[in-house]
Amino acid sequence: MAGRATADLTGPAPAAVGEPAILAEGLSRAFGGVRALQGLDLTAPAGRVVALVGPNGAGKTTLLLILAGLLAPDGGRVRVAGADPLADPLAVRRAVGWMPDFFGVYEGLTAQEYLELFGAAYRLPRAERPGRARELLVNVGLEDRAEARIDTLSRGQKQRLGFARAIVHRPSVLLLDEPASGLDPRARVALRDQVRAQAAAGACVLVSSHILSELEEVADAAVFMEAGRVTGEYAVGEVSAAATSQPWTLRALDHDALARGLEAAGVTGRAAERGEIEVDLGGEEAAAELIARLVGAGVRLVEASPRRGGLERAFLTSGEAEQPR
């Protein structure tokens, strides 16, 4: 309240030099006999989107609760935006925007009132709150529902409102737990753009989701979790940039002509779905060369793309993730 420094309102506050936005070392937490986190280590830098991937019960939600300052770890060290949630919870809460996987909204308020309330909860100056609320409603595409009561909104609209709420105080660390659940495809794309915009503005975004193809499009890196530990890390886009072999999908108007063209180029292909042919290529240079050769040989090529799902493959081959629990 009075006499305390208010949050930086102009934009995400830069983390201290050399300090990652999120730092967790040897984090552990148990609920009764269930060990949700067992020595988890994680770092995430400012300005990046890091995906948190793991099966149900891997401890993702527990980790996000600790980072949001709502749950004390049993052991280990945590720094969020340079602050210790145990020693200085308010500094952490000021820096963190948190969107849980399950949350409710005050059904009796309008969307505008709801965001203004949370503006107040984050000590935004009173005069600034209505404008900030309107701005956020435009950002998440709810401007025409600003004066509508929240109980008249659809599930997806409430989800978007929840995202707007999480960024009302321009957090420097954004924690999103399954943010896309309940969203239609267009809203998912919009959410992706907003998450990228937050990272571009300097925020560190940690996002958990089960939809790996979607995470791959928004994240810079992925962290795999299993049974309360980090079991692997994966830099999105690393595979296509590296010279290692990667599957590409090719499609032509005439399937047989494509097959002959590949044979002539000395590349072995595999038949894939929908008449496509899959080939293993050593990076984009090799791909460009092959495409030029095929087109030069008169193959009427309509599609050539690196196969998506690198994150999914990496996840399934990391640790014990593929074993049923």
């Binding site: 709502l70 409710g104 929840g162």
Partner: peptide
């Protein structure tokens, strides 16, 4: 509020 999931987001604020 706890059951409706509105309390936790309030507790995560500066209140």
């Amino acid at each position: 509020e706890r059951q409706r999931g509105t309390l936790a987001v309030l507790q995560a604020t500066l209140y």
